[in-house]
Every structure is written in structure tokens, then in C-alpha cells.
Nucleic acid binder design. Sequence first.
DNA 1: TGATAATACTTGCATAATGCAAGTATTTAA
DNA 2: TTAAATACTTGCATTATGCAAGTATTATCA
Lengths: 137, 137
Amino acid sequence: MPRVKKRRSDCPINFALEIFGDKWSLLVIRDLMFMGKTTYGEFLKGPEGIATNILANRLEKLETAELIVKAPDPDNGTRFVYSLTERGKDLIPVMLEIVSWSGKHDPKTPTPKAMLKQIATNRQAVISEIRKKLIST
Amino acid sequence: MPRVKKRRSDCPINFALEIFGDKWSLLVIRDLMFMGKTTYGEFLKGPEGIATNILANRLEKLETAELIVKAPDPDNGTRFVYSLTERGKDLIPVMLEIVSWSGKHDPKTPTPKAMLKQIATNRQAVISEIRKKLIST
DNA sequence: TGATAATACTTGCATAATGCAAGTATTTAA
DNA sequence: TTAAATACTTGCATTATGCAAGTATTATCA
């Protein structure tokens, strides 16, 4: 029996969708990328209220896709620390474009105008800045 | 009874996910944006094989979100023509970043290296070019 | 050393989303 | 007036998601 699901197509949009094309995966990426969250418990506390089984499932899928890695927390044996891989960090531009789009089209966006302007006019600097802040893995 | 689903949060990533955070919506956007497709039948023929009910549902959702508009085909009374709104076209940068990411991380990507380089080094020109080719709505 | 807490899950079951095959509605063309 | 073209809708099976409760492992504290 084939243990890996056959991909629907080789289209690059589809490739991405098969990895993070759902309502939750990018929220975990967001928490790692922008919110400084690194643990299961922290992801769980997010405002969207992800269910525990869904979170566990997404963490596993994202790890399988090598967007994140899991490691024991050296300071706390009951805990694991998740972090973005290089592949995961390479999603920074995608995430920023989404933030820009929502910033433009959601009247209730909490993103400050100044930040949106920064992203628009200083893309590379913003990307580098975010990358720099992420611990290396 | 509330007829609109309450949003999970005001986070810009979440805002976007609630609109196109599924396995199909961005494929319809892709078809409109890059493939020159405009009709139900054309979307249906895509390599991923979307089901007819799912396609109908997504077209409706995307129209409700004002990413696309539906209009009768002036040349063929049995047909409707879908097109991207300005809001939909504003997803070009998001889509291009996804194409770039997949181009870098999918060994089987069909995107030519030259195109990936164009997107990376000539972003604005590529975006303008794609926008120009899309019929106005 | 044994009990409690902290953390990260897993499980069972209900509801919702998706997938598949077939059917319907409207307009056009013969 | 029938048939074709196009865009759906419907019914039902399968899969994904949501919710509440339970388990497993390590740490802490009496």
C-alpha cells in the first residue's frame, strides 16, 4: 500500500497548498515567525482557539514537510521547543505579502499603517530583520 | 440567527485564511490570474480535478469575498465569465511569493529558472505585467 | 520516595467539509 | 422541437475538524 498521498499536480501553487493549504498551518507558522512562540502550550493559547488534536496533527505535518523542527527544551524536561527551519523561514515573504493584502483589504486590521508602509517600501530590510530575530536551527 | 460566521481573530494572517485558507480557492485564483481561464468548465478541467460541487461552492465564496465577479458571457448565453476584482488582483504578490517558495523547495517544480529569477529580481515589473494582461472589471 | 504539577499530547465521538456520481436548469443551435 | 452546451445542484460516502476527557513523561516538593 502506498503510504504517501499522490500529489494532485506539480503546479507550484498546488505544491504549497498541499503543505499549508488549510485554516491552521499558517497560524502555527505565524506564531513561530512573528509571535516568538515556541511551545505546544503557547500555540494552544492563540486567539483563534486551535483544538489540541488539530494542533498536534499540524505540528506533525509541518515537521514532516520540514518547515519546523522539534527539540527537547534543555531548560525544562517536560517541554519541547519548536522552531522554523530554513524552509520555514523562506515563507517570510509569503507571510508579509499576506499581511500587506489583509492590511489593505480588512477594515479591522490591527497592523499599523507604518508597518504596512515599511513592508511595502523596505521589503528586504523587513525580511532580514525578522530572519535575524529567529533562532538558528 | 446570525447568518455570518464570527471571525476567529482579527490577525491579518487569519483574515486571509478565512477567505482562501483551503485546498482549492487559490487554485481558482491561479487559473484566473495565470492561466487565462474564465469559465466554470475551464476551472473544472484543471489538473487537480476539483469536484463540481466544491467548485461551485468556492466560486460563490470568492464572489462573496469580492475577489472575483461573475458576469454573463456576451458571446454565449449558456456561459458565465468570471474575472478577478481589484481585490483579487492584489493577490498577485502573494501568489508570486508562493511560486517562488515552491520553485525553491519543490524539486519537481515546473517553473523555469529564468522565471523565478525574473520574479526575484524584477518583482514590480512582473506584477505590473500580469496585472496588465488581466481584463478590467 | 511518593504525590502533585506541568507539559504535551491521544482518544472517542459529534459535526462539518470534501469527494464522487448522477441529475437538473437555462440558453443555443439544428 | 429536439439535442447540445454550459453551469450548476443533489444525495450519499468518506475524510477533516471540533470538543471534552483521558494518558504519558518529566519535574518539583513534602
